[in-house]
Amino acid sequence: MSFADLHQSILRVPPGKWAVGVSGGADSVALLTLLSRRADLTLHVVHLDHELRGEESREDARFVAELAARLGLACSVARRAEIEPTLSDRSTNVEARLRACRHALFRRVVRENALAGVVLAHHLEDQAETVLMRLSRGGWLWTLRSMGLDSRVGDLTILRPLLPHRRARLREWLVSIGQEWREDSSNRSKQFARNRARAAMSATGVDVGQGGELAASLVELAESASRLCAWIDAALAPLPERFCAGELAKLATILARRAGMRWLAAHGCDPAALSTNVLDRFIAMARDAATPSRQHFPGGVLVRRRGGIISVELPRAAARSSRAVPRSFPDA
């Protein structure tokens, strides 16, 4: 059986030094073994022990460390208890908190070893499950965008070269080379939203792992959302520092939400905290004069509406400092 399609996808990773996120499961082990066959890559294996399954979790960590050693690769293993206290924002959602821990570990390893970024093993079913989870939470257009083959989360570059491929294809590769992997028993737990999404898709009788149409439709939805978002971003003019409420009020809601998200993020709000409820509250400040004229938004950003003009209200100390330094420009 030929695996030219997988090897071709792996060529998307530029030559250089990269971290590789490896859980020990089939997907990440397939990614690692494929990458390790490239002579122009210097790989550093990264594993986070989530400490959710006791000895089973520790066995996963040992498996990954031994696999890295056998391949002659550097390896960093950390426990959740080491990373979690360093997080600036600890989400109450377990899955979000674990993802934040992994990203924090990836950033640390990338920074300390001067790596280009991290390569992850997301595949087509991961994409479909992510879209289904976001739909179930009432996601809007921007949250339905597909994961990209490459992206940046803050200062971390993330590559996902296996995104077009199905889970079963990666297992076929591992079987062909006689490579074992670990099975995570927590994948059967209904505590996690991703597992519930996977179970819901299987319950339709169209198993995403068997080439079902549901997975393909969800991925098509995500890709269409990405294209539409890109078009809107290119066409939508940014709101100025201080703007007339009417500029935002006249926009269709889907455009007003995006304009509001960009403006709030530019003024210090965490984009991840800008839910539709938060954005609609911001839009209401422009559309309804009866709404409070001073409102706080995520990150402690205070927005003010005065005389039909919307702006960020600086803390008093900052405002005094701003007034103390005249903003003058040289004569032309």
Rank of each mutant, 00 (worst) to 15 (best):
R38E: 09
S321P: 00
L239Y: 05
L67I: 02
E82Q: 08
L87W: 08
F297L: 02
L71Y: 01
T92D: 14
H123Y: 05
T204I: 13
A69M: 03
L248N: 01
W173Y: 15
L141Q: 10
A100S: 13
D40I: 05
G300M: 12
L302T: 03
G209C: 04
K250F: 02
G205C: 10
D270H: 01
G308H: 07
L214S: 08
L149C: 00
W181G: 03
L141D: 03
E125V: 06
G205D: 05
L314V: 01
V219G: 06
W231F: 09
R58Q: 15
S57T: 15
V22T: 08
C244D: 13
A65V: 00
S322C: 12
A128L: 06
R316M: 10
G139D: 08
R305S: 02
Q191N: 15
V206F: 13
W140L: 04
E95N: 09
K17D: 09
S151Q: 02
N93W: 05
R79H: 04
R194V: 10
R53I: 10
S2L: 09
R169N: 02
L274C: 10
R294Q: 12
I254M: 09
L98M: 15
I310R: 02
A284C: 01
S23H: 09
V153T: 03
A289Y: 00
E247H: 12
H267I: 01
